[in-house]
Design a protein around this nucleic acid. Structure first.
Ligand SMILES: [Zn+2]
Ligand SMILES: [Zn+2]
Length: 744
DNA sequence: TCACATGTAAAG
DNA sequence: TTTACATGTGAA
């Protein structure tokens, strides 16, 4: 038995996107299992791969497997089937899908040099007493170590903690009081946090009904999807927690997906507080080895619940009962690079393969999901009221055109200014929200109008204040802010546009006595800074918090009674069929940040197009009407959920080549469409991509639209094969995105 | 004729 | 992606 194995080699190329068979030498037979990582000879060299099948007989010559990694099985049959589905659905190589599933990289054990006391705690205390008072920093360091002997900090970290430099630590090492020790880094990202254990709350009537319905679905032991639509502050998390408890009772496992930016200690503690160390966390920021470690922990320890971002949908469970997707509508569930999967769709597929239940939670369902409840594909459960019957906040809309007419040239309307003043007087807190898209700050010359742009991308460089620098958001290119215009030499070159810094500055001018903080990429770059700002806001040390998307996510700030949105319609101007949906979701989300305590909340939305239904209906908290209107326009314009889209992007540093290939592919596609009588299929383009150039690569795109996705996929793959045979311009990159979220 | 550059197909 | 082999080119 186990004579041969079928291996997918780790090479993302069309020609090797098929299994290769190898003979297993006797010494390795005991380690043969699907999902193991192997080393095999490939051509004249060695290569890594994964076992995807075990075969008893072959009718051709084979080479021998060189080695099988014994660490663990990277995927089981169920995850392999899921990978196969992904590769087919999203048109990528099987190996790419597999690599999305397994923890990335090698089992590199990361080490660091940590500081430990050289003597026992008691002895160290004595040393402290006997030390020369002049070495007060050394005493501080030593005392810190005596109090926190298990922290295992590196010398830089320790120096930071006690506000000194590593040289102090060096001195202590030389004296023999402490020593360096190399430790394996096996980080448990939240182990240092103390979690308040919580008991199940007694649910509200609506929650009770929701839990009951979910339990019923779980009991069926048959795959199904439930959409839990609950207004902001309606207590969705408690429903999740009690649903998980039911899954645990049945001896099964749960995956909880939350959007990347919501994966904070607060979120994690909600789950750890209830279920303790049965919970593991899978960040996607975890580095190579760390993710590997967490995987090992999940497999080896008694982990029953995994909380994580997008990729946690692949958590290595064998007896999955439930997958929860919080904020189901969030666009971060779609992966940006290949394979461009959507975690919601993958979750539904995975649930189908393991007879599990998917629970989608949100206040503002994606059009797709709500539509599926209407046609009976998903079950719909609603939580229409906030807990304790708190009212939804009052929303007022300000027409910025009117403001301007009446002579207000600031970015804050009269009303917003008054309300801010009022909150400051009452000692209540406010949040000011800026939609990041369309809100870049750019540097422009006042004399000749020259705008500082990225050489490699078709965008202007963004101005950052701290440190002062110009940066490209697409390729990370950085340069110093010029003192003179590179075009005309004028010294009147300065930054324009509204950024969070600018809002913060203006607020400081308006309310010099207020404490104002800002939360954006600049202020949260430092590790832990995000947490720090949030917690000091929560403690009431900050009166006004200015921020981007980051502050819109489900934090509970009881004392926030005012939310201002500087301009609501920036997203509306984008060439994207989801613009209306995005705007509605964002406004609802932001509005939900207020009135979560005993005091009522108020929301002020400033807009240049206040008549737009996304804004009007967000004011009314009226999702249903919004859905009705939006679904109507989608149906007429033949956009999802009534059709599927496939976006094909061509890119190369030579735009002529890109255009040539785009045209070629466009022609092949139309020819194929005629052949297969593709009347239901529409081809748009080729057109220049909305982001015409990124990292020096020019981009053109083709968009396919049609009711039958498998027909679309077949068409693309056929056309691409044909293109490969035909085209001489092989250097042009062709990238396929199935179900793209936007048009970019 | 050799040394090196460039293209192309194949990988069990 | 790496590699071998085929084919092509220019200088000696
Ligand atoms: Zn750039
Ligand atoms: Zn100029």
């Amino acid at each position: 038995m186990c004579k041969y194995v079928a291996v997918m080699v780790d090479l993302p190329v069309e020609q090797v996107d098929k299994p290769f068979t190898y003979k297993v030498p006797d010494r390795l037979k005991k380690d043969v299992e699907i999902g193991r990582r192997v080393i095999v000879p490939f051509g004249r060299r060695k290569i890594e791969g994964y076992i995807i099948d075990i075969v008893e007989e072959v009718d051709f010559d084979t080479k021998d497997v060189i080695n099988i990694f014994t660490s663990f099985q990277f995927f089981n049959q169920e995850l392999l089937d899921l990978a196969k589905w992904i590769s087919e659905y999203y048109q990528c190589y099987l190996i790419s899908a597999l690599k999305a599933i397994v923890p990335s990289g090698k089992n590199k054990i990361k080490t660091k040099r940590v500081i430990k006391l050289a003597q026992s705690i008691a002895q160290s205390k004595e040393i402290i007493n006997e030390m020369n008072g002049r070495a007060y920093k050394q005493i501080e360091v030593l005392s810190y170590l005596v109090e926190n002997p298990n922290l295992l900090l590196t010398s830089t970290e320790l120096a930071q903690k006690v506000d000194t430099t590593p040289s102090t630590i060096r001195a202590l090492v030389d004296k023999g009081f402490i020593l360096y020790q190399v430790e394996e880094v096996r980080r448990n990202p939240c182990s240092h946090l103390n979690f308040k254990t919580t008991k199940a709350l007694s649910p509200t009537e609506d929650q009770q009904i929701a839990i009951k319905e979910i339990s019923n679905s779980l009991a069926e032991e048959e795959s199904s999807t439930i959409l839990l639509k609950g207004v902001t502050g309606s207590g969705k998390t408690e429903v999740y927690l009690q649903a998980i408890a039911k899954v645990l009772e049945a001896g099964k496992e749960t995956i909880v997906l939350v959007p990347e930016i919501s994966l904070t200690p607060q979120t994690i503690s909600r789950f750890k507080g209830r279920f303790g160390n049965q919970v593991a966390v899978l960040h996607s920021q975890l580095s190579t080895g760390e993710r590997f470690d967490e995987w090992r922990r999940i497999k080896e320890c008694n982990v029953k619940i995994v909380v994580g971002a997008r990729s946690a949908v692949f958590a290595p469970f064998n007896n999955l009962g439930l997958i929860i997707i919080d904020e189901e509508h969030e666009s971060s569930y779609k992966q940006d690079d290949h394979p461009k999967y959507h975690a919601r769709e993958v979750a539904i597929k995975r649930a189908e393969l393991s007879d599990a239940v998917v629970l989608l939670g949100t206040a503002t369902p994606s059009l797709e999901s709500y539509h599926r409840t209407q046609i009976g594909e998903y079950k719909l459960i609603e939580l229409p009221k906030r807990v304790d019957d708190r009212p939804l906040p009052e929303v007022e809309i300000i027409d910025l055109r009117e403001e301007l007419k009446s002579g207000n040239k600031t970015m804050f309307s009269e009303l917003l200014q008054e309300e801010l003043k009022d909150r400051l007087a009452k000692g209540e807190q406010s949040m000011i929200f800026l939609n990041r898209r369309g809100f870049s700050t750019f540097v422009q010359c006042r004399e000749c109008g020259h705008v500082m742009e990225c050489n490699d991308c078709d965008v202007s460089l963004t101005y950052h204040a701290n440190p002062t620098i110009l940066q490209c958001h697409y390729c990370d290119y950085k340069e110093d802010v010029p003192n003179t215009c590179p075009n005309c030499g004028s010294i009147y070159i300065k930054y324009f546009g509204v950024g969070t810094q600018k809002v913060e500055e203006s607020l400081k001018e308006l309310y010099p006595e207020a404490t104002i903080a800002r939360m954006d990429v600049d202020t949260t770059r430092r590790k832990g800074a995000y947490q720090q700002i949030l917690s000091s806001f929560k403690q009431g040390e900050i009166d006004i918090l200015v921020g981007t998307q980051m502050i819109a996510k489900g934090h509970d700030f009881a004392n926030v009674t005012l939310v201002g949105v500087i301009t609501a319609d920036t997203a509306l101007n984008l060439p994207d069929f989801r613009a209306g949906e995005r705007t509605f979701q964002l406004l609802t989300q932001v509005a939900g940040r207020t009135g979560r305590g005993d005091k009522e909340g108020k929301v002020i939305i400033q807009s240049y197009t206040p008549e737009h239904y996304s804004i009007q209906l967000a004011q009314e908290h009226d999702y249903k009407s919004f859905y009705q209107l939006e679904i109507g326009t989608r149906e007429i314009a033949l956009y999802p959920p009534f059709t599927h889209l496939i976006n094909i992007t061509m890119s190369n540093e030579d735009e002529d080549k890109v255009i040539k290939v785009s045209n070629q592919l466009g022609e092949i596609l139309s020819a194929e469409m005629n052949k297969i009588d593709g009347e239901d299929i529409m081809l748009l383009g080729p057109v220049q991509a909305p982001l015409a150039k990124v990292r020096g690569q020019y981009r053109w795109q083709l968009l396919l639209k049609g009711k039958d996705l498998s027909q679309l996929r077949l068409l693309t793959s056929q056309a691409l094969t044909e293109l490969k045979d035909l085209s001489t311009l092989k250097s042009v990159r062709v990238s396929v995105d199935v179900d793209p979220l936007g048009m970019l």
